[in-house]
């Protein structure tokens, strides 16, 4: 009889535990979410690092990233502040900067192309100036020498 009662009580407690378990899990999840916004800050930091690396890549291609870097610094300060509204603002800034990355990458490619064309044109013009100098400079020097010594008189000794 006692055993039956015990098993009955055990059954009730297990059933109640099972019934309450979703609630308990929910509470645990809420606790994790409500725990200091460190997790959210870390997630935002990870996003920021990703955007920063993309900007670094655009910079290596020749894009000007000074303005987006300032924005990222602002986002960083907001993340460090840690308040929910600051984190929301930081998220917005990061996504805005992220949206500019494709344009910056294209700008970087264009800038690299322009600088390459500039460099090769400079080298080609340098080679042309060198060849022209080699060919015509002696003649020019002699011509100007003769012009400078126009009044000289040659006397037979």
């Amino acid at each position: 009889m006692t055993v039956d009662r015990l098993s009955f009580l055990a059954g009730i407690s297990i059933a109640s535990l099972l019934a309450l378990s979703p609630l308990m899990l929910g509470t645990a999840a809420v606790l994790v979410r409500c725990s200091p916004s460190g997790e959210e800050q870390e997630a935002l930091r990870a996003d920021l690092v990703e955007v920063f690396l993309a900007l670094q890549s655009a910079e290596s291609r020749g894009a000007d990233i000074s303005a987006p870097l300032q924005s990222l610094n602002h986002a960083l300060a907001l993340i460090q502040d840690g308040k929910p509204e600051s984190l929301d603002q930081a998220r917005l800034i990061i996504s805005e900067v992220n949206a500019t990355v494709p344009r910056l990458l294209a700008e970087g490619d264009q800038s690299r192309l322009i600088s390459s064309v500039g460099l090769y044109s400079f080298l080609a013009s340098l080679a042309a100036v060198g060849a022209l100098s080699y060919l015509y400079l002696p003649r020019l020097i002699w011509r100007s020498w003769v012009k400078a010594k126009r009044r000289w008189e040659v006397a037979a000794s």
Binding site: S133, Y134, I141
Partner: peptide, 11 residues
């Protein structure tokens, strides 16, 4: 000689 000097400067 002038040509050689010019060449050296150009190089």
């Amino acid at each position: 000689e002038v040509r050689a000097v010019v060449l050296a400067i150009v190089v």
